[in-house]
Write a protein that binds this DNA or RNA. Structure first.
Lengths: 193, 193
DNA sequence: TATCTTAGTATAACGATGTTATGCAAGTCA
DNA sequence: TGACTTGCATAACATCGTTATACTAAGATA
């Protein structure tokens, strides 16, 4: 039997997906989970706690997407695989992705555990990007390479999620992302960061 | 004498800047502007209308940043100037920038006028990016080039605004953006899109 | 056994939010 | 003048996140 705690998380996830951020109220979560509103406060630290849990879930998916790509030996192939994985995760769980990037609740600030999950995900991305650099490259170089890749991939996703979608008829966001990433990756391989 | 309408806008802008999104309540705006809450509904279409006005303001600044860079003849110099202008605008008006990218109020969806302002800004960006392509290049190619640049610049800004700021000690976001943009620009100049 | 502590729940309420119904004052035009 | 629109103020509405209070059930301790 599922615990009330897990039922609350499940309900919150469903609501965020189907009703959007504005439908994610404490009362709605409690009602869908079949508990009283106070349950949100006994099992989590209020709405903030529930959002934190979803935030962690979201970044853990990113972590796995990067880690699995890390297993590929060939550096460029591994990075491109990671980018595709990242886009798949962001597409399949758009609500969680928006939460991660602060587009869900302006008041929400991730708590310590949530930030730790973000750090783990970023670390796995740095590890993936490091494959493009010499083994002994300094940490700051690795981070720079990772950020360059992440900025580009996330930038495309953010524009894609944004109203620009309506402005410019465009159906090959994924291909465009890959082309641009290849350009950046080749540059890193050739010149470092 | 300033009209009540302009006083409301001014108050909303100040509140968003100083108190953040959560401080931007209808009552707070009205109070700071020295009008009654109902004034927000006679002069604008409620909170949505005020946000629309700020949204338009924000995109108009982006438009100007792109247009002024367009006056530079040398293509690469013009684009780099545009990127620097864009980052300056986003930095000087971070609250407005976040509003534009949906990080302020999850419920808010830009109305028709706001979307039109966004389109104008994007058009000026396409015009700027077009300098990198042959004069007769198809519109879709120009849009692709513009999106590639925009995604990278915005991606860096979004990560910079994000919690990543705390995760990775990093103080040369601007330089990193320029380096990556140069890579993309050179690639477009050499191979098209 | 009897009492105490603790966790989880339910009800109801608090303050704050966006919005609106009602009423009033002033100006405009027939 | 009389009918009308426009702008404002007050007060109220439903909903939001949160919490104070009280109750139940289980486990621990004497």
């Amino acid at each position: 039997m599922a615990s009330n705690k897990s039922k609350i998380l499940q309900a919150a996830s469903e609501l965020l997906l189907e009703k959007g951020p504005s439908g994610l109220s404490v009362r709605a979560i409690a009602s869908l989970a079949g508990v009283s509103t106070i349950g949100i406060y006994s099992h989590f630290k209020g709405k903030q706690g529930v959002l934190d849990a979803l935030y962690v879930e979201g970044f853990e998916r990113v972590y796995e997407a990067m880690s699995s790509a890390c297993e590929i030996d060939q550096p460029k192939t591994a990075v491109l695989r990671g980018v595709k994985n990242y886009r798949e995760v962001a597409g399949a769980h758009e609500a969680a992705y928006r939460l991660i990037f602060g587009e869900t609740n302006a008041d929400y600030e991730p708590g310590p555990e949530a930030q730790a999950a973000g750090l783990r995900a970023f670390t796995s991305l740095v590890e993936l990007a490091s494959k493009l650099l010499p083994a002994g490259a300094p940490k700051s170089d690795k981070q720079r390479a990772a950020l360059r890749i992440w900025a580009l991939v996330h930038g495309f996703l953010s524009l894609q999620h944004h109203a620009v979608q309506g402005i410019v008829g465009f159906d090959d966001w994924g291909d465009q992302t890959i082309v641009a990433i290849e350009c950046i990756v080749d540059n890193i391989l050739a010149e470092g960061v």
